[in-house]
């Protein structure tokens, strides 16, 4: 792995606070870390630790107060609003805790909303099969279970074959079994398509399937671990 690939994502002295004066609250207090290309990185931490804020800044939908972020050598701070939109369009996929599907588009059409953003999207039928949704491709979101909806949401994010997939508590609203299915799917996507995955979660168990775990607390990195003994998602228990 080249130095460039090893530092595919580089965060330097990243700070973010909300409010001002007496109500000022430092959410991120100077973070430094790198993520390698194709790595499955988990941002772990309790509520209020700043992990979602970090994810949003990495995704270009929120701004840092100071510090720098480099993705594949590009400095995020150099990008204006249009540049950020282009960056998200070409390089990022987003998966949220809530699936945020378009209610009057069917499964396939929802995935097409992601495919439209890419000049070279993945084959949708192939992807639908991988997602286990091929049989349901003509259904509307409200005809699907929560897990299925999250699969659609992952499909929408992954169909444009992004360099980085950002997942914000993707299993937060799902039960144990469905959560494991989703984690298995993300693992499969990471394996098959080689995307760098950054997942925010408060579930300690998930760190075991990650290549890289960054533990946050009070806006600071408490531990930055490379997991050399990772297990599969199927093996996870909590």
């Amino acid at each position: 792995m080249s130095e460039q690939e090893r530092k595919f994502l580089e965060v330097k002295a990243l700070k973010k606070s909300f409010g001002n004066g007496e109500t000022k609250q430092d959410v991120l207090k100077g973070l430094d870390f790198t993520v390698a290309k194709g790595e499955f990185c988990v941002l772990l931490g309790p509520s209020g630790s700043g992990k979602s804020t970090l994810l949003n800044i990495l995704g270009g939908i929120d701004n840092a107060d100071s510090g720098e972020i480099f993705i594949d050598g590009d400095r995020l701070a150099d990008m204006d609003e249009k540049g950020l939109t282009r960056y998200r369009r070409k390089h990022l996929g987003y998966v949220f805790q809530m699936y945020n599907l378009i209610p009057n588009l069917n499964v396939k059409e929802n995935i097409e909303t992601g495919a439209y953003l890419s000049d070279k999207p993945l084959d949708i039928d192939e992807l639908l099969k991988i997602l286990g949704l091929y049989e349901h491709r003509h259904k509307l979101p409200n005809q699907l279970s929560g897990g299925q909806q999250q699969r659609v949401s992952i499909g929408r994010a992954i169909v444009k074959n992004p360099d980085i997939l950002l997942c914000d508590e993707p299993t937060g609203a799902l039960d144990y079994n469905t959560s494991k299915e989703i984690l298995q799917l993300i693992e499969e996507v990471n394996r098959k398509y080689g995307n760098t995955i950054i997942m925010v979660t408060h579930n300690e168990a998930i760190k075991l399937m990650a290549d890289h775990v960054i533990k946050l607390r009070d806006g600071m990195i408490r531990r930055d671990i490379v997991n050399t003994e990772k297990i599969t998602a199927a093996e996870l228990e909590w």
Partner: peptide, 13 residues
């Protein structure tokens, strides 16, 4: 990995 064609804008539908 199989790649497909870029679909028409689904928002039009």
């Amino acid at each position: 990995i199989f790649f497909g064609k870029r679909p028409k804008n689904p928002l039009i539908k």
